[in-house]
């Protein structure tokens, strides 16, 4: 879109001697669900806090709706946030928590009460208005935190790892709540997480950050299928990395000469997703193959990840379904052929 809601231009943030964020450029359009993802210390939370005005950029400008926000205090912005700790006010009851933002903005009492009620209804918390915060379950607190942030009807909601304190089954439920809420309201969500499943299942676009810089921006599927850098390929996981020397159409790696999907020269890194490789016992499958010694298997509900050790000691991963594993029945130390089709391979920046 031509008119982004948020734009970061050359934004950097330094804490003491450390640059937490380095010349970041990012635009977010209205109604988009963007996830900022990366390992801890990658600068994703700092980026979010700068957007909320809780940190001031050291360099660069941030604008929201065309207005440059540098120097605008946190309380003068309309960028409500859902906190990792939820940060609900323990001395206020549920309704008073939800009303807080309206009260600070000078909304009259009757209107505050009715708007708080409306949002508590909407999030299925209508019976809990007079409860104390300590009397709520984790999921209920989450809903109160959402209601508290949304009651002022902002254009954008910031979420800082909001589901990290919840039990696994609640996480899935809350993901559903968040996704449908975002679609219904049509407002922008900026969602910080280190969890791939949260980012990939909800976001329209995922921003992968590493070491204070953006490593890749794109829709979840693109990030997964076409990781731009080795860092992304490794961070996203379930990718096999082959390193070597590209000589035209082939990659000369310690595991052997492997065909490349494109023509390249010089040092190169090739990624192949684990769910695009197959393991065979007696002979190589179709397409390029390497040998690997079976190490272990990891069961993760719907699929199984098998780990093999390549001849150079590197780890090779193959994702198989349960049926295939039963058929294969690998034993520890047994050598297999691991194969993929050339178009599953993908050359990444190093």
């Amino acid at each position: 879109m031509d008119n982004p809601l948020v734009s970061f231009t050359g934004v950097s943030k330094r804490f003491g001697q450390v640059w937490a964020v380095k010349s970041l450029d990012l635009s977010i359009t209205r109604g988009e669900f963007v996830a900022l993802m990366g390992p801890s210390g990658c600068g994703k939370t700092t980026t979010l806090r700068m957007l909320a005005g809780l940190e001031e950029p050291t360099e660069g400008t941030i604008s929201i709706g065309g207005r440059v926000m540098n120097g605008v205090a946190a309380h003068e912005r309309d960028t409500p946030m859902v906190w990792q700790s939820l940060a609900l006010f323990p001395f206020l009851n549920v309704r008073e928590n939800v009303e807080f933002g309206l009260k600070m903005r000078g909304v009259a009492k009757e209107e505050r009460t009715s708007r708080a009620k409306e949002w508590l209804d909407r999030l299925g918390m209508s019976d809990f208005g007079d409860r104390g915060i300590e009397q709520l379950s984790g999921g209920q607190k989450q809903r109160v935190a959402l209601a508290r942030s949304l009651v002022t009807e902002p254009e954008m909601l910031l979420l800082d790892e909001p589901l990290s304190a919840l039990d696994a089954h609640l996480v899935i439920r809350m993901q559903g709540v968040l996704s449908s809420l975002q679609r219904e309201l049509g407002i922008t969500f900026v969602y910080v997480t280190h969890s791939q499943s949260e980012a990939f299942s909800m976001a329209d676009r995922v921003v992968i950050m590493g070491d204070g810089e953006i490593a890749q921006i794109g829709p979840p599927r693109e990030i997964y299928r076409r990781p731009a850098t080795r860092f992304v390929a490794e961070f996203v996981g379930r990718n096999n990395i082959f390193e070597g020397e590209a000589r035209g159409n082939s990659l000369h790696s310690p595991l052997g000469t492997l065909p490349l999907p494109v023509t390249a020269f010089g040092p190169a890194v090739m990624a192949v997703a684990a769910d695009r490789v197959s393991a065979n016992r007696d002979r190589p499958g179709e397409g390029p193959s390497v040998k690997g010694r079976f190490l272990s298997e990891e069961f993760s509900g719907t699929s199984i990840l098998c780990y093999f050790e390549g001849s150079d000691g590197s780890t090779i991963k193959a994702q198989v379904d349960e049926e295939a594993l039963d058929l294969l029945a690998p034993s520890h130390g047994e050598v297999f052929w691991i194969s993929w089709s050339t178009d599953a391979a993908h050359l990444v920046g190093s």
């Binding site: 946190a74 309380h75 309309d78 940060a87 006010f89 807080f100 933002g101 600070m104």
Partner: peptide
Amino acid sequence: SLEAAAWNLGASE
């Protein structure tokens, strides 16, 4: 985060 949460909801220091 409690103070930051209040600023974030429009409360001055």
